[in-house]
Every structure is written in C-alpha cells, then in structure tokens.
Design a protein around this nucleic acid. Sequence first.
DNA 1: CCGTTCATTTATGTATACAAAGTTCAAGGA
DNA 2: TCCTTGAACTTTGTATACATAAATGAACGG
Lengths: 236, 236
Amino acid sequence: MPGAKEEDFLPLRDSVYNKLRQAILTGEYPPGERLMEVHLGDKLGVSRTPIREAIRMLELEGLVTMIPRKGAMVSQITEKNMSDVLEVRRALDILCVQLACERITSDGIAELRKARDNFERAVATNDSRRIAQADVEFHNVIIRATGNDRLISLEDSLSLPMYRYRYEYIKDSSGHDNLVKEHRKIVNAIEKRNPEAAASETGEHIDNQRRSIMRQIRLEREEETMNALYGKRTIR
Amino acid sequence: MPGAKEEDFLPLRDSVYNKLRQAILTGEYPPGERLMEVHLGDKLGVSRTPIREAIRMLELEGLVTMIPRKGAMVSQITEKNMSDVLEVRRALDILCVQLACERITSDGIAELRKARDNFERAVATNDSRRIAQADVEFHNVIIRATGNDRLISLEDSLSLPMYRYRYEYIKDSSGHDNLVKEHRKIVNAIEKRNPEAAASETGEHIDNQRRSIMRQIRLEREEETMNALYGKRTIR
DNA sequence: CCGTTCATTTATGTATACAAAGTTCAAGGA
DNA sequence: TCCTTGAACTTTGTATACATAAATGAACGG
C-alpha cells in the first residue's frame, strides 16, 4: 500500500501524560496544585483509568507527589530538591562530555558544530524561547553522542524539573556572551578529544547555571512570603 | 492508645509491585517472560488494576519492557544494557564518595566503620548471601551520607538490574580479600576526607565489579546458545 | 463560646465489564 | 505444496461501578 502512512494512535495514557506534563512545566498547574482524577477526566474527556496511569508516570519522574489515600499534587520545588538534582546532573553532564570525547563520530562532530552555530544564531535574535530550544538541542547532541541509552533517558528526566527555570535562566543571564563562550569551549574540547578540558568546562557551565537557578528560586520564595503576609492570591 | 502500633496497610499495587520485583530479581520470571495481566491477577488474587499499575512502575525502573497493544515482558539483560548501567553507576558512585567526604558526620563515620567490620565478619563466614547483604549495607551507608535524596533514589534504581548478578559476583570473586581491601581503602579515604583518593578507589572497585559481571553475562549467553543448538528447554 | 462527635461528602482504591487490536491456526484455492 | 484469508481466541485499552478511607461541617453538650 504505497503512500499510506499509518497515523500513530498513541494510547490515551500517553496523550494525557503529555498534556499534564506540559501543563506542569509551563506553570499552568503550579506546585501544590492538587490533581484530582475525576476532575481531570472530565476536563480531558477521558475516564479515570488513563489519568491514573499518567499520574503514576509523572510521579516516577518526580513531577508529582502522591500521598496514599490522599491523592496527587504537583511537586513542590524546594531549594534542597533542585540542589540535589543539579548535583547529580553535574556529575552526569561531565560523564556525557567525557564519553562524547571518546565516542563521537565525525558525523557527530559536524552535528555538534551545527548545533553550536544554530545556538549562536538564536542568541543573535535575542528570542529567549528560541535560545532555550537551541540550548536544549546542543546538549542533546552531546548526550546522544555517548551512545549510552540509560544515560540519555536519565538526562532527560533530570532536566525536566529545571525546564520551568530554563526560560528565565536564559533571560536572566546577564549577557548571553558567556553562554556562547562556554559552548564554544566545550565544542573545542570535544573536537580535540580532550576529556579533561571538556569536563572542566562543563563543570563550570553547570555551576553558572546552578547559581542562576538558585537565585531565582530564592526570589520566588521571597515573593511567596510577601503574598502570604499581605494577602493570599486567589487560585484560578 | 498506648502501645497500639498501626499495622501499615500498603496498597495492593505496592504489594504486587514488591512481589513481581522480587520474582524478577530472583530469576523466577526470567528475561523474556511475558507478564499477562489476567494471569498474574488470578495468581495473586487481585484484579487487573493493581497489576497494571505495578507493571508501569516496573517499566519506569527498566525491569520490564512494554510494547503497546502487545503487553509487558521481563526486560532482556544485554551486555550493552548492563554496560550502560555500570557506566552511569561508576560516575554516581564516585560522586557519592566525594560528597560523603565533605558531608559525613562523626556518627556517619562510626556507622561506616561498623558496616566495614560487619562486612569483614560476613566474609569470614564465607556465606555468600550474608556477604552480599553486608556489601549492600556498606554502600548504603555511604550513599545516605551524601544527604542527596535524588542521588539516593537513583542509586537504588540503578542497582536493581545488577542484583541478579551480585550474588554470583560475590562467589566468583577469586578470593574475597580484594573486596575487603577495597572497602578498607574507601573507608580510610573518607575518614581522612580525601575526595580524590576516595574517588579513585571507588572507580577501581566498580571496574572490578564490571569485569566480573561482564564475564558472567558472556558465560550465560554462551549457555543459552548451547541450549538453542541442542534443544530448547521447556518454559514452565 | 468552644470542643467533641457523627453524618455527609468527596476522592481514591479496587473490581469488573465492554471494546478493539493483535495473534494464531486452519481451511480453501492457485 | 504454499500462500492467502478469515474466524476464533487472547490480551490489552478504556470506561464504569462499587467499596472504603479521609475530610468537612453541623449539631449537640459542656
């Protein structure tokens, strides 16, 4: 049957999972928001079964917290929590570049250069959304170059909790020049297949990211404290 | 109501999850075994709902593989797969000892010494089961000393796929003296709060483990090949 | 006026029923 | 003999119904 392309029907649970995940990452469902099965089911037009399964998946990724007999809520993002994630990500990102130095193919290097250039073009436009996307893609090239499937999926799930901050982080970065420089240094180190240099550059890259994200969380918390003192804002 | 201790009723899904996990890790359900919902439900005396949820949890941990509209099966353990896991674990174990050097309390050090001594006593008995357990506990002390909850849960899920081999690994280890020595070196480094030494000792420790596990997987695969050539064994 | 208790409500935990997709195997024709 | 076809069966996907625990609030008593 030529030309007949199978439209892939992905199961409802996956569809629901994607929708919920998106809603959480964009902040539509803020931390602490309760996720009630019947309510979500009505809203999305499906029964409780796929909702439950989607929520379980989100729980295992750490985006929602479940309390038995109580229900699910969007995970609170605490400073400690984010700090823990970043600590682990630092080690894994360094592992990624080290492995990439050993294993990247010439095609991979070409792809990496392209991603770097694309990132620099994005920075030139000053469009935060585009910059964030190019940044993700740049890192994905490196991660894929490791050829380690477990590492790839771990990096994926560890970067989730930070997506809410990545956008602001990009804007916050006082001048994007640092980001561009850091990316260049990392590419150079990988091209030369120099794991030590790549590792140290990556460490610095993450440390900068950490500082920015931590500052933001503190700001956010202060704001919350103010709200608590001067009046609770209505929730939807 | 003094003395009245609440017996914790854990939900059926968790109970099922534990049972299935145990069955997979002990090899009762070998890799490739299909996990059918009604069948398991009959066997365990529960409906499909908790079974499904337990299977989803196992899938996210990598112990079972799901194919849409086809069902779940116990994940195949390939050399590549295990190699990927070990590569990640090496990086995280090293992170653990480095953090432990910074953060371990004096109580923690006392606990660590106790775990080390307990391990040595276990080795003296030559009881593989006991040795394996003492080994796990030793590493857990270090992991907990990091105070990083995300790291703790990651280490937990990454060590799962190896449990099937750990037991054999202990037996295989030609003389347990190496293990004892390695543990001692790690404890010494942590006591002196020397992250570099701790990291290098841990790296070596994991590399030894890796060699042993890889050898075993190859042996197992050869055996399978023989079976395939000379006759298929019946599956339950 | 405050605290306790009990009924009501709400949401989750679990079971079951129905729908649809995939697999298997046998029958029929080239 | 081999390939095709289709019907029965198996198994998952989804919806719904029932059971049970927690939270809420009102009524009663001190």
